[in-house]
């Protein structure tokens, strides 16, 4: 699983890089527009340690933000799954709020919370929260009549059991959504760092762009891709373990 993910990323990355270099040499563009291979290699060696720490920092924030978003989406989806006024309000709010571009809201978050960890965490969580919430609401709202019927007619149904049945029956979908949103968490953290934070790979990217240093940008993108792939693989493995423990036939996304 891991070699597949990594090799897929490496193929795409190096295809892209090859394309850029082909354009550079075709049109004799300077290293300022597209850096040469040696330039990229030297820059990568130069910034590797620093960028590695930065990308690990970003990954840490993304993972925590992702977990927060999952927890929050679960709570809100449970509250909003009912076919009542509260449920309708939560669903309407979720659908309307998710249309807001978080990038536009992010500066307000930085003003309120400063440029430290809380802002990065919040933005990462918000960016992956809404897709999670919409999927969770969809899953938890849909009755599994073939299982729930017995509990309903015998008066045993409780909200915890209802949630458990619906989550269990849609475990593959849930794992797909959680894995898919992991990339969003990473993107959210990088956007947050780019806009307002003072650490992380997004911040390093911003500085590299300020300096018009494409070689640094390419080095950062490489590390982001590798660690994002690692995170996705970790989640997929976790999903398989969960599915196995629950007695569900394990299925890859």
């Amino acid at each position: 699983m891991l070699p597949k993910r990594i090799s897929q990323f490496l193929i795409i990355y190096f295809l892209g890089l090859g394309l850029l270099l082909a354009i550079k040499y075709c049109f004799s563009l300077s290293d300022y527009v597209i850096p040469g291979f040696t330039d990229i290699e030297n820059t990568a060696a130069d910034v590797f340690g620093r960028y590695l720490r930065a990308v690990l920092d970003t990954l840490g924030v993304a993972v925590i933000g992702h977990l927060l978003a999952i927890a929050l989406a679960t709570v809100v989806a449970i509250a909003g799954r009912g076919d009542n006024l509260v449920g309708a309000m939560i669903k309407t709010a979720a659908y309307n709020l998710q249309a807001y571009p978080i990038v536009a809201v992010a500066p307000i978050i930085f003003i309120l919370l400063g440029d430290g960890l809380p802002s990065r965490l919040l933005i990462a969580a918000i960016i992956c929260y809404f897709p999670l919430l919409l999927s969770f609401i969809g899953i938890l709202t849909e009755p599994v009549a073939s299982i729930e019927h017995f509990y309903v007619v015998t008066g045993r149904m409780r909200w915890q059991l209802e949630v458990k049945i619906r989550a269990f029956e849609n475990i593959h979908k849930l794992m797909t959504v959680v894995t898919g949103s992991a990339t969003l968490a990473m993107v959210g953290t990088i956007v947050a760092e780019f806009i307002g934070a003072d650490s992380g790979i997004g911040y390093s990217l911003r500085i590299a762009l300020y300096q018009s240093d494409m070689a640094k940008v390419l080095a950062a993108l490489f590390l982001i891709g590798v660690f994002n792939s690692l995170y996705l693989v970790s989640l997929e493995l976790l999903g398989l373990v969960i599915q196995k423990n629950m007695g569900v036939e394990p299925r890859m996304n």
Partner: peptide, 8 residues
């Protein structure tokens, strides 16, 4: 910076 990278 651009000159350092060979921009014409």
């Amino acid at each position: 910076r651009a000159l350092a990278k060979g921009a014409p």
